[in-house]
Structures are given as C-alpha cells and as structure tokens.
C-alpha cells in the first residue's frame, strides 16, 4: 500500500525512489536501456487520432424531437410575432390573426418541449434561480418567460376581441422579443464544444433567423388573401435567398473535417431536403400572386424547409460530437502550426 501521505500541505513520508523515472531500474548498458534512452530505434508510427476511435466529447443528451423541434417552433413563433405586429400596422388584416395564433401555439408547444426534455421536469423553475449572461440557455429562459405570455395574450385578445389595449401592448411586446427568441438559439448550440456548432458561430444566427423568417412567411402565405400576399411573398423570397446563402457560407468557412457533418448521414439528407423545399417555396410564392392554392403549397413547403434546416443542424451537431476527428484534427492542426491557444 501507499506509504506516503498526500495531505493538503503536500506529500509527507515519501518513499525513497518514488521519483524513479521509468527505465532507470534497468541494467545500464543493456540493449533495451540504450534504446529507450537514446530513442534511436524508435520509428514514427502512425498516430492514432483518438482513444480506440471513441469520441472525445460526450454527445448532447437532448432529444431531437424536443430540442430541434423547439428551434423550429420558437423561430417560427418569434418571427410570426413580428409579422403579426407589422401586418396589423399596415392593415394586412387577413394575416394578423393567423400569425398571432401561430406565435402563441409555437410558444406554448416550445415550453412543453423544453420542460419535457429536462431530466427532472419538475425542477423546470430552477432555471429562474439565476440570470447568467454566460449561459445562452439562461438568457433564453428569461426571454421566453417574457415572450410566451405576451404571445399568448396577443393571440387570446385578438381571437376574443376582449381588452384591445392589452392586446396591442402584448403584440408589441411579443414583436419586440420575437427576433431575440428566434436568434438566441443559435448562440445556445454554438456555445458548446461540439465542432459543427461551435465553428459555425459567426453564421449560425443568420441561418437561424433566415429559417425563422421563412417559416413565418410560410405561415403568412397559408393565410394571406390575394390582397395581402405581397409582403409575404417578398419576405418568403428574401428569407429563402438568405437561408440558402448563409447556410452555404457557414459550411464553406468551416474546416472540411468539421463541415463533413453537414453533408453526410441524416443531417446531409435533411439539409438537402431543406434546400429543395426552400427553393420550391420561394418559387411558389413568387408565382402565387393570384393563386391561393399555390401559395398554400409554397407556405407549407417553407415551413417544412425551416423544420428540415433545424433538424439538419441539430443532427450535424450530434454527428460531429461523435466524430473524434472533428474534435482532434483542427486542434492538432493548431498545435502543429504553433498557434495553439496554450502556446
């Protein structure tokens, strides 16, 4: 057994020879000692990239249905609140109520999804013990605590016609917080060690708001009358273009070892589907000026595209967390280039 004691004041009663370096006990002059000391016969052997090919990181424990689903719903809701408020101001009446209902529905489902995904759902309110700007989840919880009630009150007053003044205030509050709700989720996933998320941190917020805007445009197109469709058409086309461009930019700027997660497997399939649906939705919106049917189809395509983007980004993160090369290789490259943070 260990004869020395390690105390808070350091080591006491150390055994003699405990500092003996490996190899020092070997008879001097023997071939093996020579080799291990001089290292002459060592030849470089291919460096394994990880420990038995296991991931370096522990993968997120989030469920895709709840968390990627929340990214979609929260984004759709946040952007819809803005659409509702602006539509109300500019008299696009056919859009106002559906947008408010979509926002309220999205907000409520978001809360349910978030609480369900907790390991201890009964402790959900522990989130309100602290406010931590270093934790996007904490910031987001406080945002949602303001946003969700506002969106719900806005929809309820719009539907019932009760308390119009309260309704106006609530829609204004929801519209003010909506963009933050739609975008902070990007910081939430990028503020992790997951390479495919962290390395996309400069573009991810733009990918997310574009996806949110196209979802909200989708909701609007589902509802808009012929007279009110023009702004939604413009929003749909703009959002689709932004989504296609930012998503490309993000993948291009990443180390290829990391970006791989966006091209392969489930994430690759989802993101390809998202691109096709986005393009179809934008074309449909452009062509649907006088065609309600076509607008409904393109609205649905845009909503589906937005969901595919969020699930795709989510699964890319999961795949990259499980890929030791995505973690190790960029770091190893920094070390080899002498630009490691530790240098």
């Amino acid at each position: 057994m260990n004869s020395s004691r390690v105390t808070q004041n350091g080591l006491v009663d150390t055994r003699p020879g405990r500092e003996a370096p490996p190899g020092s006990g070997r008879p001097t002059g023997s071939a093996s000692a020579e080799r291990s000391r001089g290292g002459r016969r060592r030849r470089p052997i291919e460096q394994p990239r990880s420990y038995y090919g296991l991931p370096v990181l522990n993968s997120p424990v989030w469920e895709s249905r709840e968390i990627a689903g929340y990214f979609f719903l929260g984004g759709m809701a946040g952007a819809s609140s803005v659409v509702a408020a602006v539509a109300q101001r500019s008299g696009r009446d056919s859009v106002v109520k559906p947008a408010k209902l979509a926002a309220a529905g999205g907000a409520m489902l978001s809360l349910v999804a978030l609480v369900t995904d907790l390991g201890r759902p009964t402790r959900a309110l522990n989130m309100l013990r602290v406010f931590k700007p270093t934790s996007p989840m904490s910031v987001g919880t406080w945002l949602l605590s303001g946003y969700a009630p506002a969106a719900i009150v806005a929809a309820a007053t719009e539907t019932t016609g009760l308390y119009p003044a309260v309704g106006m205030a609530a829609s204004a509050a929801a519209a003010a917080l909506g963009p933050a709700v739609a975008s902070y989720t990007a910081a939430l996933i990028c503020d992790t060690a997951v390479p495919a998320w962290h390395d996309g941190r400069h573009e991810m917020p733009f990918v997310f708001v574009s996806s949110a805007a196209s979802a909200a445009a989708g909701v609007g197109l589902l509802a808009a009358s012929d007279a009110d469709e023009a702004p939604l058409r413009r929003l749909a086309i703009g959002a689709a273009a932004a989504e296609l461009a930012t998503d490309r930019l993000m993948e291009r700027r990443m180390d290829p070892v990391v970006a791989k997660a966006y091209h392969e497997g489930k994430a690759g399939t989802l993101l390809r589907a998202a691109r096709v649906l986005t393009a179809l939705g934008a074309v449909g919106a452009a062509a649907g000026r006088n065609n309600r049917q076509l607008r409904i189809a393109s609205g649905a395509a845009l909503l589906a595209a937005s969901a595919c983007t969020r699930f795709g980004v989510f699964h890319a993160g999961m795949a990259s967390a499980e890929d030791p090369a995505a973690t190790v290789e960029p770091q190893r490259a920094r070390v080899s280039a002498g630009s490691a943070v530790g240098n």
């Binding site: 700007p133 933050a180 975008s183 910081a187 997310f208 708001v209 703009g238």
Partner: peptide, 28 residues
C-alpha cells in the same frame, strides 16, 4: 490536444445574434 473553453467566444456569438435579430426585424 488544444481545448478552448467555448465561452471565450461567447461575446462574438452574442454580437452575431444581436445583428441577426435586428436583421430579422428589419427584413420583416
């Protein structure tokens, strides 16, 4: 080999989020 605490970059992330949020409001 060269881990970096993710929150070192959180400032950049919050800035990008703020720009994106304003961009969304302006686009709508």
């Amino acid at each position: 080999p060269d881990p970096v605490v993710t929150t070192r970059h959180l400032g950049e992330m919050w800035r990008a989020v703020a720009v994106a949020a304003v961009g969304l409001a302006m686009a709508v």
